[in-house]
Amino acid sequence: MGNVFVLAEHRQGALRDITLEMLALAPGLAKDFGGEVEVLLLGSGVDALAEKLSGYGVKVLVVDDPLLADYNSDKYQKVLSALIDQRKPSLVMVGHTAQGVDMAPALAVEKDLPFVADVIDLKLEEGVLKATRQLYSGKVNATIAFKPADTYLVTVREAAFEAPDPSAAGSIEKIDSPLKEDLDYRKFVEYIEAEVGDVDITQSEVLVAIGRGLREDKNLPIIEELANTIKADLCGSRAAVDAGWLPHDRQVGTSGKSVKPKLYIALGISGAFQHVAGIKGAKTVVAVNKDPEAPIFAHADYAIVDDLLKIVPKLTEKLKELKG
């Protein structure tokens, strides 16, 4: 009792950032619960990852099993379920990632755990665990209290916490795999890498990005003219790609690319966290959005509250004039 489980996330041999980000939050909570942090590492041949994780001053519980060679939510759920029964942690932390969201809600149902998804903060206040999460794409925050239970479950938002630096040496404990056989109802087939397009936006110096605020594709030419004027590449939010305005390899954000241009001009992009996570490397961010409450403005260096269609043509004209 009292321990905090952190589920390590890794893929294709590399740890995912979320794992270390959760380690920013876990030690304080473990202390409040009167226990310690235990990082669960599930996989096959993961000694190197275990070694790396133990360098953060935590205990790493390793379940090394050929059945866990490829990620499978249902197998992860079975292992976590068994470990929760055996070790009775007070809190289980899982990344709010493509892996985590595919597993955690089912685990919550199976084990009847109080569960909050996508938390951006988590505190124990006078014995009550309280989570902060966002609604309406970050326009509203919610405080959610967990009713008292032996074990709580959360998924933690990516990039909401800064990964700590490696600290003291921790320890590694190998655990027998609770998996007995392969699953017949869900099988991993393969990974398919993202298509490579004509332009690699991760290398672009200047990016003009569009979002839902473009409204329709007939407005694309004014954007293209701006981009041509300042030798920028075009990219956009998920909404712009879903609408067919841009090919998939131009999508910026968690499910697209992370970019690091000198200048990022966000036009009609609201700034959902999934998008903003992809522009952390941008040096200067300009945002144009007609909604003054748009979360993108919290990440901008220059802000214009207006309809992009009213701003962009004049901006292009003036840039042409100034650049001669």
């Binding site: 009847d112 755990l113 109080p114 569960f115 909050v116 309280k130 966002q134 609604l135 970050g138 326009k139 509203v140 925050n141 919610a142 405080t143 959610i144 209290a145 967990f146 009713k147 239970a149 945002a287 409450e293 979360p295 403005f297 919290a298 901008a300 260096d301 220059y302 802000a303 214009i304 509250v305 207006d306 309809d307 009213k310 701003i311 004049k314």
Partner: peptide, 26 residues
């Protein structure tokens, strides 16, 4: 097993320079 305690508008800490004026001026 959870209680929605409260909703609130988060304080947006923006370091952005807000460019004001008519659309053309901006």
């Amino acid at each position: 097993k959870i209680v929605l305690e409260k909703l609130y508008i988060p304080e947006v800490v923006s370091k952005a320079e807000i460019i004001e004026g008519e659309p053309d001026e901006k």
